[in-house]
Design a protein around this nucleic acid. Structure first.
Lengths: 210, 210
DNA sequence: CCATGAAATGACAGTAACTATCAAAACAAG
DNA sequence: CTTGTTTTGATAGTTACTGTCATTTCATGG
């Protein structure tokens, strides 16, 4: 139980403090060491020990910051942001439009801040089963959060089977877009692909049965 | 590439032979030892060593038969059967009807042959992340196979983004039904739930935007 | 029935991701 | 600078999984 972040005022945190600053630095060191090593040697060939060494911390510390190796590569803070953004959309807006907007915005943010991570992750997702797994799991959690917003809009119970299925099929679809993007060597704009995917989820297959 | 199983004639295999029979027995022994132990102690508390001991084989042998612990619990032969069944449906039949039919038939078969396994798997899927992971992976493979049949029917390229997304959203939806079933203590007929899920995938949410 | 080759098994050693524990070091606050 | 708290590192252990090689078990032809 953390102390209720409150609506996240930008300047009300009591100042970073040396301790906090160091933690952030360590986190970053571990992450970038990992990205570097994985880029050089591949995911499986990179051990926690190597990561610890390059980040200049002990292996224990690595595990203290990240529960699993996959998390080092995948963890970020975009998901809760996405849900918040979604909830703040006008209630009258068609559901799919909201989704499109939020997806665009998230991808934009990610692509602006660290585009190479966006790609490396997709690439690892395609190649390393454990990473793909963790990615699905993470997207499923987002899907669970989405259910709340979704049920609200549709006037349904968030735990109703229909809502669950809808949210999860969305997750499956989004995951596939991401993987397909990587498999086709990142050809095309990811946002365009996402739009095409959402069209499919909304209207079914183009030439399919009506 | 296996040697084309041919339409699976029932009596054309050259006779089991002692060796083959023993292999099947060992496989079964490992599987049922695992189910028993997992039932008694839970999944995580059950080690390969214990499984080997109860199945009266060496740990090495366990790994020779199953690549991972999760596979012991999840492996079966229903998936290819499902795809074959799907392909043999009349070409004119609406896609969703085919799917409904095939899902019904698969679930029936599974529920008839070993209903407790059907439930234990779902239960483990809910509780053990590694099992859920492997399950998603397995369903995704089925989804990949489905793409072939699906694209054929819709007159599309199996590798087209739209087809991929559609197949994968289906997988996500089906996975969620299975998990929801277990979470609600297996209330209701699984086939009915699947039908409701397919309705959602076909028509969207009941009260949602049109 | 037996000899020969092939497949399956078991024993052994090793790797790497985690977990648990506890003492030492780094910071915070008075 | 002292005292209390948080963070770190060292160490030992567990377990899934891999690789290797000698031994055992089945298949087959004579």
């Amino acid at each position: 139980m953390t102390a209720a972040p409150s609506p996240l005022s930008p300047a009300d945190r009591p100042r970073p403090g040396l301790r906090e600053r160091k933690k952030i630095k360590t986190r970053e060191a571990i992450r970038s060491a990992t990205y570097a090593l994985v880029g050089e040697q591949g995911y499986d060939a990179t051990t926690i020990e190597q990561i610890a060494e390059r980040a200049e911390v002990s292996p224990s510390t690595v595990f203290r910051y990240f529960p699993t190796k996959e998390d080092i590569v995948l963890t970020d803070e975009y998901d809760p942001l996405m849900v918040r953004e979604l909830r703040s959309r006008p209630a009258g807006e068609p559901w799919m439009d909201s989704l499109r907007y939020v997806m665009d915005k998230s991808i934009d943010a990610m692509a602006r801040e660290n585009p190479e991570v966006l790609r490396m992750r997709a690439h690892l997702g395609v190649q390393v089963p454990a990473v793909r797994s963790r990615m699905v799991e993470s997207m499923s959690e987002t899907g669970r959060l989405l259910r709340g917003a979704l049920a609200e809009r549709a006037g349904l119970d968030p735990d109703a089977l229909e809502v669950r299925v809808y949210a999860m099929s969305l997750v499956g679809g989004m995951m596939e877009v991401y993987m397909a993007w990587a498999e086709n060597d990142f050809e095309g704009d990811l946002r365009d692909l996402v739009h095409r995917a959402l069209d499919v989820l909304e209207h079914g297959l183009p030439t399919g049965n009506p």
